[in-house]
């Protein structure tokens, strides 16, 4: 995992010039970027470029997956074949994308009011067009924005962030080199209230470092990620509401 000869921290700054707790820039969410999807969103986060589209609630296919008590979510995370600086990727699902689709879906199931739409299916498609590390948490955030854009009711909002360790230092929002050559990575999703909906970890961390990751992760979701999500929603919808109220 760790590679010799790559200096990820120099003179108290990270390889891309950030301080330890800075989130990459740009960090920008835009709602309603696609015409056909019922809801959509585009997230730029560092060099990550991610688009999410939501369809539904709609008829469940295949039918036997229908649940008489609530809606089901189908979630597909995928990376474009040209999303990485390295080789041409393979199209279609792979083992990594299947796992990530599962953990993103489980986190979404927590916040979407599924019981409002029994016997239906909500489809969430996420495509990473350009990748720079931290795509799963950025993808989750894009999915939430697209669900909001689709008018799907949710009990609260949530956003994702990764915290990790590079050159012995805990840092927020790992970039690509930090992700590849760092010592640990903890992707997380938190609700506004601080509930943990997605949690994975690889690398080696002490318990104190895990605690730091959880504390800092929530702080950044609450103070940076969710405010940007809110700004994006207001950007698209606040104007319209005001317009409609003009008598």
């Amino acid at each position: 995992m760790k590679k010799e000869g790559i200096e990820l921290i120099k003179d108290g700054k990270r390889i891309d010039g950030r301080d330890f707790e800075d989130i990459r820039k740009p960090f920008r969410i835009k709602l309603g970027v696609l015409k056909n999807a019922n809801g959509s969103a585009y997230v730029e986060w560092g060099k990550n470029k991610i688009v999410a589209g939501v369809f539904g609630p709609k008829e469940v296919l295949p039918r036997h997956l229908e649940n008489p008590h609530k809606a089901i979510i189908k979630c597909q995370y995928s990376m474009s074949t040209f999303s990485s600086l390295e080789e041409h990727g393979r199209a279609g699902p792979n083992r990594r994308s299947i796992e990530l689709s599962k953990v993103i879906r489980e986190a979404l199931e927590n916040i979407v009011l599924l019981e409002h739409y029994p016997r239906t299916m909500i489809e969430v498609f996420i495509t990473v067009l350009q990748a720079e590390g931290g795509t799963r948490v950025a993808s989750f955030t894009a999915a939430v924005a697209a669900l909001i854009d689709a008018g799907i009711p949710m009990r609260t909002i949530a956003g994702g962030i990764a915290v990790g360790k590079v050159d012995g230092q805990m840092v927020v929002d790992l970039g690509k080199e930090e992700d590849n050559y760092g010592e640990a990575d903890v992707p997380m999703v938190f609700t506004k209230e601080g509930d943990i909906l997605l949690l994975q970890m690889d690398g080696m961390l002490t318990k104190e470092e895990v605690e730091f990751a959880l504390t800092k992760g929530y702080e950044k979701v609450k103070n940076v990620i969710l405010p940007e999500l809110r700004r994006a929603v207001e950007e698209k919808y606040a104007g319209e509401i005001v317009k409609k109220l003009e008598l």
């Binding site: 489980e106 927590n110 601080g194 509930d195 994975q200 970890m201 080696m204 961390l205 895990v210 959880l214």
Partner: peptide, 24 residues
């Protein structure tokens, strides 16, 4: 002495204190 992997499953939430207790 290290946590080397974690994986959450299911749609319920955990509190930070839950996770730290489980690590212990």
């Amino acid at each position: 002495e290290f946590v080397v992997a974690m994986q959450k499953g299911g749609s319920g939430g955990f509190k930070k204190s839950d996770v730290l207790k489980m690590v212990d």
